[in-house]
C-alpha cells in the first residue's frame, strides 16, 4: 500500500519536472503580486515593513490557490482519476501522495522564495525564521484545503473562479495565524503560539482533508 504511495509520489514528481515552466508560474505570480503592492501604496519603507506580513501571506495564499486550479484537471481528462477510483487502493492515500508531491514542488519553492521578497519589503532578518516556519506550516494546509475545492470543481469547464470562491473563506484562519506570527516577530514578540496553532491546523488538514478530497473526486468522476 505504501509502495503505491511512493510510486505515485515519484510519478507526480516526474510529471512536474517535465513541465518546469508550469512550476515557475506560481512563483512568478508570487513575485509580481509582491512587486505590485509598493506600486499601489507607495515605496515608503516604514509603511511597507508594517504591512509586509500581510502582503507576503496574501501573495503566497493567492499563488497557492492559482497553482491548484489544474491540480486534478489533467488526471480527470486523461482518465487517470477513473483508474484511481477503480483501483484497490484507498483513494484518500492516492490523493495525499498527489497533493504532497504538488506541495513539495510548488509550495516549498514558494517558501524558499519568500525571504527574498520579504527582504525587498523591508522585513528584517530577525523575522526570517518565523516567515519561513510559518509558510512551511501554512502552505501545506493551503494546498490540502485547496485540493478539496479542486476536486469538487474538476469536472467543470471553468472551475478557476469558482475554486477561489469556495476555498478563500476557508483560508482565513491560516492567513490570520500566518500573518499574525510574522507580525509578532516583527514587533519582537514571541511567535511560538501562532506557529503551534499553525502546526495543529496542518496536522488536522493532513488527517482530514484527504477524505474530503477523495469524496470530491469520487463525486466528480461519478458525474
Amino acid at each position: 500500500m505504501s509502495n503505491v504511495f511512493v510510486l505515485l509520489f515519484a510519478r507526480e514528481a516526474r510529471l512536474l519536472c517535465r513541465r518546469p515552466a508550469e512550476l515557475a508560474n506560481p512563483l512568478v505570480f508570487f513575485a509580481i503580486v509582491i512587486a505590485l503592492f509598493p506600486l499601489a501604496v507607495g515605496p515608503e519603507t516604514q509603511l511597507l515593513q508594517r504591512i509586509s506580513p500581510g502582503l507576503v501571506w496574501l501573495a503566497a495564499l493567492l499563488a497557492v490557490l492559482l497553482s491548484l486550479d489544474g491540480l486534478f484537471r489533467g488526471d480527470y481528462e486523461d482518465g487517470s482519476l477513473e483508474q484511481w477510483v477503480v483501483s484497490p487502493h484507498p483513494l484518500a492515500l492516492l490523493v495525499l501522495a498527489k497533493v504532497l508531491a504538488h506541495w513539495v514542488f510548488s509550495g516549498l519553492a514558494l517558501v524558499i522564495l519568500a525571504p527574498l521578497l520579504g527582504l525587498m519589503l523591508g522585513l528584517p532578518g530577525s523575522a526570517m525564521p518565523v516567515l519561513l516556519l510559518s509558510l512551511l506550516l501554512g502552505t501545506p494546509v493551503l494546498s490540502l484545503l485547496g485540493a478539496v475545492g479542486a476536486a469538487l470543481t474538476v469536472g467543470l469547464k471553468r472551475g478557476g473562479l469558482l475554486l477561489a470562491l469556495l476555498i478563500l473563506p476557508l483560508y482565513i484562519p491560516v492567513l490570520i495565524l500566518g500573518s499574525g506570527a510574522l507580525q509578532a516577530a516583527l514587533q519582537g514578540l514571541p511567535a511560538a503560539g501562532y506557529l503551534l496553532w499553525l502546526a495543529s491546523l496542518a496536522a488536522l488538514a493532513l488527517t482530514l482533508t484527504p477524505f474530503a478530497i477523495a469524496a470530491g473526486l469520487t463525486i466528480s468522476v461519478g458525474e
Binding site: L152, S220, E223
Partner: peptide, 26 residues
Amino acid sequence: GVIALGHAITNRDSAAKACAVLAIVG
C-alpha cells in the same frame, strides 16, 4: 460557495453530493 457550486454542476445528484462535501468541510 455552496450556492455557486450547486449551480455550476449540471448533474443534479452530483451537485447535491458536492454541496454536501463542501458544507461538511465548511
